[in-house]
Computed example of a mutant assay.
Amino acid sequence: MPHATTAATRLPHSGIREIVDLAIAAPHPVIRLEIGEPDFATPAHVVDAAFEAARVRTSYVQTAGIPELRDALAARLTRATATSVPMERVLITHGAVQAVDAVLSAVLAPGDEVLVPDPAWPNYQMQATLLGARAVTYALRPDDAFQPDIDEIRRLVTPRTRAIVLNSPNNPTGAVLPPHILAAVVDLAVERDLLVVSDEVYDEIVFEGVHSYAAALSSDHVVSVHSFSKTYAMTGWRVGYALVPAWLADTVTRILELETSCVSSVTQAAALAATTGPQDVVGEMRDAYRSRRDVAVGVLAQAGIDIVVPRGAFYLMLPLDPHTDSRAAALDLVNAGVSFAPGSAFGASAPHHLRVSLASSEDRIREGLQRFLAWRAAGGLASPLAGAHAR
């Protein structure tokens, strides 16, 4: 019988999806705070544009994306970065996931290294593993407000390093990179001739101040990755885009052709309507996420729990007792009627934290955290009923 021997056999299962599956199958109601799924509906004008496109014609389109959408996004990025962004550098992808994968596929060979944050969205490490490359982590420590140490990043660069991944606003921490740290990382990349892969899918969800765009600092050493999923509540539409250096655009386009031929023409019509249509909904959702963050921070503060207050995205990191394993806690909390993602699903730097998604209503966030506090007051994993799902 044939058997798998490729790097794919070393890919771990998602610690987030483990909790998702358990929460869905639970025999009792569970308040779902484990997944980053906006609870808002896709704006009506976006849905209408997709229906109209589907009625007119569905067909193959250009691999790099339809020109109208690429041009509209180039204009958006020109405004956002205060630099000139030509359409040719903007590529449409099947979600931000494909953008990151295609870029890493273009620059990493087996044995190469890529620096990735920890904690972080686990796909960065998984994509490097699949390519036969090595993901080297730099820590985002709670004591440092989940900000990277530029000196640590510099020390980790070796002759095998090809890229540095940044993610701001960050999943899972909600931390936002300050401009001076962002500039220091890009300066290091230019100095050592590395590529910065800047995952900015939450760029429109910044609560204080404005987002700093890495692409504004270098056109040759930065790829910025964006998505419609979070900004416009379009997770299921599966459309993202990347701003790539001119020297990389053709190679990435060829990889996209191999992987998917093109992104759905209907989806791209919806994305075009989102980009060029009314933007009020973006601000309204951002305001709602900010309000939800404030509710969560208030509930935890009243309980005497200090957290690193998130400045963007829609997550916060909830600290557990220093000796509590986050996976065991997350599994057991489903028994208590609330689900969180374990910090261990995002790396080694926050093993005693839970990620709380703020993509649910204020009432559900408040009730979910109260269930956590009741579980904690009852002894948590030390309680007699604990561990039923952890075995």
Rank of each mutant, 00 (worst) to 15 (best):
S198Y: 13
L91H: 11
V239T: 13
I164P: 08
G337C: 01
W375L: 02
P351W: 06
R70Q: 06
S14A: 10
V90F: 07
A4L: 12
A133S: 08
D280H: 11
L381I: 09
G298D: 15
R254C: 07
E208A: 14
T78I: 10
A80C: 03
A270G: 15
R290W: 14
V239H: 03
T93I: 04
H94D: 13
D112G: 07
Q98F: 12
Q279P: 02
E88K: 13
A336N: 09
A390S: 15
G95I: 12
E113V: 04
A184I: 05
A233E: 01
T260R: 15
I164D: 11
V196L: 07
V266Y: 06
A273L: 04
T276L: 09
R76F: 10
D199A: 06
I19G: 07
L354W: 03
A26L: 10
L115H: 08
V165I: 09
T158N: 06
V244A: 09
L166I: 08
V297R: 08
T93P: 02
A145T: 10
R371D: 05
T6R: 01
V266E: 08
G368I: 08
S219C: 02
V157A: 06
S291I: 04
A120T: 12
M234T: 00
E18M: 10
P142A: 09
S349W: 00
G15A: 02
C262I: 07
H211G: 03
T5G: 15
G387M: 09
A273F: 03
R371N: 06
R254Q: 14
T173P: 10
A249P: 13
F346A: 05
L73G: 12
P12N: 06
Q302I: 03
V239A: 12
P351Y: 06
R376L: 06
L156A: 00
Q98C: 04
W247Q: 14
I16A: 02
G277E: 13
A274H: 05
G379I: 12
A75R: 13
L22K: 13
G343T: 11
A102S: 15
R366N: 11
D112S: 12
A184L: 10
V282H: 01
A128E: 00
I31P: 01
R192P: 02
T324Y: 02
V107L: 11
W121M: 07
D220K: 01
A25L: 08
F314R: 13
R10H: 12
T235E: 14
L369W: 11
A53V: 08
H389E: 08
E200V: 08
D250Q: 10
F146R: 05
L354G: 04
F372D: 05
T81R: 15
S229Y: 00
